[in-house]
Design a protein around this nucleic acid. Structure first.
Lengths: 330, 330
DNA sequence: TATATTTGTGTAAACGATAACATAACAGAG
DNA sequence: CTCTGTTATGTTATCGTTTACACAAATATA
């Protein structure tokens, strides 16, 4: 592989001039620039990123931490981030934390020593302590769906609470008169907010009672068992709002196996907006703007990396109702 | 951050001794080793990977190219690879190619210039030309589900053809008497093999006719439309083998919407073994050993990177039938 | 005309490691 | 007692960039 030295020699200039040409900083005469360009072309020269990183302390790499790559939400997010990263000439290092605090800590450590330029964290279990080592090295961090008030950390969230309300309003509109809720892990902020939305919209109605809330874990299986339990307590429920789509899918399965017809007997709505198009009936959902979240995450991260000053430290994205077959009337 | 120089100074030895200690090559006295260990502990020193890479030409990073991270098969594979990579102290760079040849080429270029130590390619559309630039730089490559005879390239595949046969045999065993097939893209080797398996097992039976094969594209929607088409030609079919699970899920959806009961009227089996547990009924499938594939891919890649000589250049993994509700009798 | 300022270029010191090479002490073999 | 091999350590070039600094020519300013 050709090096900058080869280029400089062949172009009859010093390496500094070539470097200045490459980085478009400092002065380079038009003439010199042209010869350099030609030589680069001829030698098919491409700067060595490693050397660049060592000299310049920039790696053009970011870390992405997700809790569970098997939940379709995260591949979708990862994809959006990856695409945006690519546009910036950045590559993404994927870290699957399994919601394991130890793994999280280890990955942060690894990313730190790989000298990534920034980190996007979409992992539920992250705690302020974990971030402190990042803060110390002043590595830019974007948190998705998780808030810590702190500078040099940007938080992106969605209107979780409003989404919960929307879901209930939609079910009511479609004629439901006894709506149950399957909530996610209480340790997760966004999960709690969705449940708060459910409570806002249903407390005060004549049918509401706390036992209409089932506690689960964001998995299909968890949604399935929670649904069975809810059914045994409230055989007459006719609407279900699950805090994510996977649990909604599990609930749907439980309902179908229990002989309930969805949407005729019971209507179901989820949250997230992952396209589980294989379901019959297809699931209504409160959709997050996943691609936009990913793109904004990357954009903001680049802002932090480049130390731009006009970065919004907290952004809240709207959610949208997507009505499908699972909440159809008649 | 502490550097090797800081350590050497504080330990009263030269950087070379510290380096030898770190890499466990060359001689280091017990005494010196202990002081160095202490100093490292005290300074919380960790070697700088970038500098290491520049000096030693190893980046401890591999690239992973997948065609479509939204197909659950690939997150599962990615996860297995990532776990194995971690055990080796390696990190994974994720590249989503979207089955786009141009993107593929660009990613290979990027990975090359990021100087990854090796690449695992699970992308369908890869062509020998693409690999040539890798060969030139003699970068180790592992191909999953794709074969190119060539040294320095290891191919991992599964018994696709046998799997196709297994699927048909299973359906026959469960009483099917007219089995249709939804095949995947003909451009994909493994897809063709699965279809060959179907043909092996069904040609010669009294019910077989070419129009029982529908052509599709490995997506849910593709499976759905292919199924509808097959149903219109053969309303009396009672078994379906789809070349992957996503198409099987789409087929299931189409069958249900057409008023067919699965498994009573029609039995369905897919291929891959991704756990689509949210389906009702759950899908039978010919499962690939995904985790094992991922782990072996990483192990073999490390073998190539370390220039070990005993690496199997082609490995074929067995598939296993997983019978679920969608092929139940009665 | 004298003096800044802008433009263009080169030299050489980082960046933080690895490893080739040199050196020396000490053991056992002859 | 010399020779050779093993153990242990240090010096320094190297990897391929970036960039601070020095310098000179050209241009603008006073």
């Amino acid at each position: 592989m050709a090096t900058i030295k080869d280029v400089s020699k062949l172009a009859g200039v010093s390496v500094a001039t070539v470097s200045r040409y490459l980085n478009k900083n400092g002065y380079v005469s038009k003439e010199a620039g042209e010869t350099i360009a030609e030589v680069i072309e001829k030698l098919n020269y491409r700067p060595n990123n490693i050397a660049r990183s060592l000299a310049g302390m920039k790696t053009a790499t970011i870390g992405l931490m997700v809790p569970d790559i098997l939940n379709p939400f995260f591949p979708e997010l990862a994809r959006a981030i990856e695409d945006a990263a690519n546009d910036y000439g950045y590559t993404v290092m994927l870290c699957n934390t399994d919601n394991d605090s130890a793994k999280e800590q280890k990955y942060i450590d690894t990313l730190l020593h790989k000298q990534v330029d920034g980190i996007i964290i979409s992992s539920y279990g992250i705690k302020p302590e974990h971030l402190s080592s990042l803060q110390k090295q002043s590595i830019p961090v974007i948190l998705i769906d998780n808030v810590f008030s702190s500078d040099s950390v940007v938080s992106l969230t969605v209107e979780n609470e409003r989404g919960g309300e929307l879901a209930v309003e939609h079910l009511l509109e479609r004629g439901c008169s006894k709506i149950a809720h399957i909530c996610g892990p209480l340790s997760i902020t966004s999960s709690r907010e969705r449940t708060a939305g459910f409570e806002n919209a249903s407390r005060g109605t004549d049918w509401f009672t706390p036992s209409l809330i089932g506690y689960s874990d964001f998995t299909v299986h968890g949604g399935y068992t929670a649904m069975l339990e809810l059914l045994s307590i409230h055989p007459d429920l006719d609407g279900i709002f699950a805090s994510n789509d996977l649990m909604a899918a599990g609930a749907l399965k439980a309902l179908q196996e229990s002989g309930k017809n969805v949407p005729r007997d019971v209507k179901v709505i989820g949250f997230d907006g992952i396209g589980l198009e294989m379901m019959t009936p297809e699931l209504s959902t409160i959709a997050q703007p996943i691609s936009e979240l990913g793109k904004t995450a990357m954009d903001s991260l680049m802002g932090l990396i480049r130390k731009e000053s006009d970065i919004l430290t907290d952004q809240v994205f709207p959610v949208t109702l997507i009505a499908k077959q699972s909440t159809m009337t008649n």
